[in-house]
Structures are given as structure tokens and as C-alpha cells.
């Protein structure tokens, strides 16, 4: 029996089961929960999410999950955010006016422009596979769950908004869409979060889950 309590936080949005399926595929049991008590005694938390930032932020407030989640993250235990679960970590979003995020990572969430710098049409949402790359100033992959991933690997993305961290030091990967370079994953202390969906990114995505789950099991 695994003695690690991994909680997938359910705040009413997003495909939680695909995250649970991957963990199970790798031999890890997870608990899908919206209960504060489960957050309080979790060993690790995954925050998934599909949809709109404001709905997600509102829903987390309504369910009273904001401060328990902040408490969990400040405890230093492992946290993983996926897609909207990464965006929510930031200070604010320009989606539907300004909405407040969890403010764990300083920066903002911005919408993809409809026209690129070269006058090119940008289709939004970005839906599909795109490459992730390491940056010079950011976190090195060898020190992260991306350590087994080759530079330039394709991951699956679905989003209309992207994160712009205030401090480049937390950037783990960047991705280019229609000429726009943006931050596609972050790592800051115990927080690891991705804009793409590793649970939908075939073998390389599963590899990221494998690395993270292994890391959190051996760190304890």
C-alpha cells in the first residue's frame, strides 16, 4: 500500500478523471476531493482545470478552498498545477476584466492577441501540440520533473490565455505560438505547474507524471 496521500482538488471545473487515470496507470492511488480536511492532511496536491479563470477563482472562493490551498502550498509540500491550475497561481488575470488569483507566483494572465506581430491571424484558443523549450535564465530541467524530457518535445495545449511571470527565474519552459513566446511551465520551490496537459500528451506527458510522482515519493 502506498502511504502517500495525493489529493486532486475538485473545485467543480475540469477533467479530474484524466489526471486520476494517469496516476493510476503509473500505480498511484489519488483522492478526488473538495474537502478542506483532505487538503489539510494531504502529502501532495494536484490542481487541474479546464475553462475560465474567473469561474475557477469564484468557485474556489465559494467552496472555501483558497486559504486552505495557500496554507498547503506554504507548508512546502509538493504541489502540481495543470492548465488553469497553473494560471490560478498567478496574481491576476485580464480575463473578463481583472480577476484575482492565488498570488503564489507574481505575474499576470494575458489573452492571446488575435493578430500577431507579423500581421498574421492567430487562432484562439490554441488547441494542439506544441514544443517546450528550456530558457537561459529560468529553472534547469535537470532539477525538475522534466529531467527525462528532451528539449523541443511536443506537449498538448488547450488555452486562450497565457501566463507572464514577473520574475523570469521561475520559468521552467517556454513555447512559441504564432510568433509569440510565452511561459509554458513554472517551478518555484515546491510548486510545479504546466500550461499544457501532460495527461493528454501521450508518452512524454506520462513521463512527466512519472518523474513527479517518483520525486514526491522519495523526498519524504
Amino acid at each position: 500500500m502506498q502511504d502517500l496521500k495525493i489529493v486532486i482538488l475538485d473545485y467543480g471545473l475540469g477533467n479530474l478523471f484524466s489526471v486520476q487515470h494517469v496516476c493510476k496507470h503509473l500505480g498511484y492511488e489519488t483522492l478526488v476531493s473538495h474537502d478542506r480536511k483532505d487538503l489539510a492532511d494531504a502529502d501532495a496536491v494536484i490542481l487541474p482545470g479546464v475553462g475560465a479563470f474567473r469561474d475557477a477563482a469564484d468557485s474556489m472562493h465559494e467552496r472555501g478552498l483558497v486559504s486552505p490551498l495557500k496554507d498547503f502550498i506554504s507548508s512546502g509540500k509538493p504541489f502540481m498545477g495543470v492548465c488553469l491550475g497553473m494560471q490560478l497561481l498567478f496574481s491576476e488575470s485580464e480575463e473578463f476584466g481583472s480577476s484575482e488569483g492565488l498570488n503564489i507566483i507574481e505575474g499576470s494572465i494575458k489573452k492571446f492577441p488575435s493578430v500577431g506581430e507579423a500581421g498574421n491571424k492567430i487562432r484562439v484558443p490554441q488547441i494542439g501540440w506544441n514544443r517546450i523549450k528550456e530558457t537561459e535564465k529560468g529553472v534547469k530541467w535537470k532539477d525538475s520533473p522534466l529531467h527525462s524530457i528532451e528539449e523541443g518535445s511536443y506537449m498538448y495545449f488547450v488555452h486562450s490565455y497565457y501566463a507572464k511571470p514577473a520574475n523570469e527565474a521561475c520559468i521552467l519552459s517556454v513555447t512559441e505560438y504564432e510568433g509569440l513566446n510565452y511561459c509554458s511551465s513554472v517551478k518555484q520551490d515546491n510548486v510545479f505547474a504546466m500550461q499544457f496537459h501532460p495527461e493528454k500528451s501521450a508518452e512524454h506527458g506520462i513521463g512527466i507524471y512519472r518523474n513527479w510522482l517518483k520525486e514526491i515519493s522519495t523526498d519524504r
Partner: peptide
């Protein structure tokens, strides 16, 4: 400029 095509 990247716009990766999907085959479904």
C-alpha cells in the same frame, strides 16, 4: 511561426 497541424 509555429502552428502545429493535428491529424485526428
Amino acid at each position: 511561426m509555429t502552428n502545429t497541424i493535428r491529424i485526428i
